[in-house]
């Protein structure tokens, strides 16, 4: 049974994802900040991370992703460099940094994107696809 870590500061969004995931027999843990998320990675050893791009600060999601992927030899997350990340892009083409999966995919160390509002069917498809890889 795969374990999924949701990193999002909006508890309602976490809940909206938890319900369909748990119904499909995934084990779900959550964190409400990038810092807590990184701690949970070490503690829970998840198989997949669902990550919100915009939390407290607009770049928090990116920091999480870059820390996790850090190539530094003494990185505490070196065992998790290959941990797949599904990024939630509630953001529209009009965020402060105009990020978009279409143009920035190359720069982002993540494996997939999902849009807010979350559609359970799409979420489950993406999750199972990433876990199979």
């Amino acid at each position: 049974m795969a374990k999924i870590l949701i990193v999002d500061d909006d508890p309602d969004i976490v809940e909206a994802m938890r319900m369909p995931l748990e119904a499909n027999h995934y084990q779900v843990v959550s964190a409400s900040s990038a810092k807590e998320g990184l701690q949970k990675v070490l503690k829970e050893r998840p198989d997949l991370v669902i990550l919100d791009v915009m939390m407290e600060t607009t770049t928090e999601g990116f920091h999480f992703a870059y820390k996790l992927r850090s190539e530094a030899p003494d990185s505490p997350y070196k065992d998790f460099r290959k941990l797949p990340i599904l990024m939630i892009t509630a953001i529209h083409r009009t965020t402060p940094f105009r990020f978009s999966p279409r143009t920035d995919e190359g720069f982002l160390p993540v494996e997939g994107f999902i849009e807010k509002p979350i559609e359970p069917r799409v979420l489950l498809e993406k999750v199972s696809h990433l876990l199979k890889k």
Partner: peptide, 26 residues
């Protein structure tokens, strides 16, 4: 722009929750 940005987050949450309810996960 400011107001709509603020409106978007709660609306997304409502919409996401509604979808899970509608699809029978609750």
């Amino acid at each position: 722009l400011r107001v709509t940005h603020e409106l978007r987050a709660p609306l997304s949450a409502i919409e996401s929750l509604l979808r899970t309810v509608e699809e029978g996960y609750a």
